[in-house]
């Protein structure tokens, strides 16, 4: 994903340690999405993607952080969100991104679904080091 300049004043960070923190991260993302002028549909898509990724950070990553900011490109505004953990990592990212694949008892739609709900998606994972997922949704 390209490195888009962020509005530094809008930058937020939420520690993800408990399920209440996922709700907090989701609310933070919702607020930024409103400020950036995303449509209601796009707000809901981004918030839902954040909910999925935040829960993965908590459940599989053993906790981590969520960062979010409003970013700008030439003529557009968007919201950038990154979830990072130092958990076990994902051995096979392609498999993890397959619809319906889960190592637990979920629906296996969180990662793949989140990718479909946003405009830009990047998954970085190293076994034994951790997982970082970055997403971006533009306002149009």
């Amino acid at each position: 994903m390209r490195n888009y300049p962020a509005d530094e004043a809008s930058r937020e960070e939420v520690a993800i340690q408990a399920s209440g923190d996922v709700v907090k991260a989701r609310q933070t993302v919702r607020l930024l999405a409103q400020q950036a002028g995303l449509s209601l549909v796009n707000q809901t898509k981004l918030v839902t993607a954040a909910s999925e990724l935040g829960r993965n950070t908590l459940i599989y990553g053993g906790g981590g952080t969520a960062q979010a900011a409003i970013v700008r490109d030439v003529a557009r505004v968007g919201v950038w969100v990154r979830f990072a953990d130092t958990g076990p990592g994902i051995p096979d990212t392609e498999l993890a991104l397959t619809d319906g694949w889960t190592s637990g008892s979920g629906m296996g739609l969180g990662l793949s679904g989140a990718r479909r709900l946003v405009d830009e998606f990047e998954l970085d994972s190293t076994p034994g080091v951790g997982t970082t997922v970055t997403v971006l949704k533009w306002a149009r």
Binding site: M107, L109, G113, A114, R116
Partner: peptide, 8 residues
């Protein structure tokens, strides 16, 4: 639309 996007 979000539910469809997620694939549920």
């Amino acid at each position: 639309q979000t539910i469809v996007g997620l694939g549920i």
